[in-house]
Design a protein around this nucleic acid. Structure first.
Lengths: 226, 226
DNA sequence: ACCTGAACACCGTTCAAGT
DNA sequence: ACCTGAACACCGTTCAAGT
């Protein structure tokens, strides 16, 4: 599709890490992690499974590379001189939206902090925390609270997408959760049963942002700006 | 080991969901999720793999049941009349400690909010949020911020434990992370390189609690108690 | 009702052999 | 240097057959 034409149509079919990752992302988007198979992938790329191993060490590395490829494109570019809180919200929303579009990323992000993209996100959050005036020793704690919250939502959304029929839309998922919570015992789960009623017009994205704001409010109250 | 003796030694070997889950937890603790195999499990239980399927629907259900079994025992009992913040900290720490002891739980918890234990945790957090005086509509957001943060740390810890050699201790892991962060480019990752120095005497548990406290501070500043 | 274990339909990964 | 594809060593799961 990418219609990159140097020599008109020759070499279109040469294998490369780039093409493998591209195909992997497509398969993951279409069918989730279980749909990515070296056999299916090699069929799509019209090779044997062994060929892929010349370009990629193993399945884990392929998943990591695919997640990084998608996330890299999703991180918003932010200039200097912006309000730290806004940058933090933008970074957080960038991750959130990327995971909504590609739920399988959620499982990947938690792998080890070695993931280059996760490190990049952590770095960006840390710098903004610094800009907010949080004192040295507490910066690590504050940045990691933000990161962990973001990763928690990421994992949760990924799991949600995985446990539901492919292609089920938002409203149906909310209905499922609502009916589950409503079916709980009233005495044991008063809070959840109460919340279930609010679920009909629930906005994941707004709730995600509300959580980010809560942490930001905590930072502001603990370390008031000078 | 459990030394339950009704009729001295008879029927010790009868299969049951309970015994299967118990054996599964042991295998998971010993070797992580990849060590739990129906073949290995049936060998331990001295049966064929098919026998297990009579008591358990599939591997997913077995993992869920194993995680629930461990987490149920880990949730602290809290009486009435306690300070909500303290209850929230206790619940959060209960989850944290359970995952430190059984890292494989971390991956399970995010499954779908249907997990009975996750629901129970959510319920407990929600009630405390209510007790803190957070107004109705905001209770859902605040409780889910806490839950998502806790699950985020859970997933992160689980991933950390998985990506490192079995049995590597805390100090070694910190060293690994420290040397990774130190190797980063100074211009691109000033924050992380700076933080790496603090890593030597870093306390996961304290940092986890600091995050909980940050969210609690946010709640307090947004919804000051009457 | 419960257990057995061979068999089915898959996996990821390797590796001799080709070009 | 790169690709091929058969083969290896596994999986989870099913199911006829046993008791």
């Amino acid at each position: 599709m990418a219609s990159r034409a140097r020599h008109p149509d020759r070499r279109e079919d040469a294998l490369s890490q780039e093409r493998i990752i591209e195909a992997a992302v497509e398969m993951l988007d279409a069918g989730g992690e279980s749909a990515l198979t070296f056999r299916a992938l090699s069929a799509t790329l019209k090779t044997g499974p062994g060929a892929i191993y010349w370009h990629v060490a193993n399945k884990g590395e392929l998943l990591t590379a695919a997640a990084d490829a998608v996330l890299t494109g999703a991180m918003p570019a932010t200039g200097a001189g912006e309000v730290p809180q806004d940058v933090i919200r933008a970074v957080a929303l960038g991750v959130f939206d990327a995971i909504e579009a590609h739920p399988w990323i959620g499982e990947q992000m938690s792998q080890l902090s070695s993931q280059s993209t996760t490190l990049r996100i952590f770095e960006r959050l840390g710098r903004q925390v610094q800009a907010l005036g949080v004192p040295g020793p507490a910066q690590f704690d504050a940045a990691s609270a933000l990161l962990n919250y973001i990763l928690g939502v990421a994992a949760q959304n990924a799991a949600m997408a995985r446990s539901v029929q492919r292609g089920t839309d938002r409203a149906e998922v909310l209905d499922l959760v609502a009916s589950l919570w409503t079916s709980l015992d009233t005495d044991e789960y008063p809070f959840l049963r109460n919340i279930a009623a609010q679920l009909r017009d629930h906005d994941d994205r707004a709730q995600f942002l509300a959580g980010v704001d809560l942490i930001l409010a905590g930072i502001a109250s603990r370390y008031p700006p000078a």
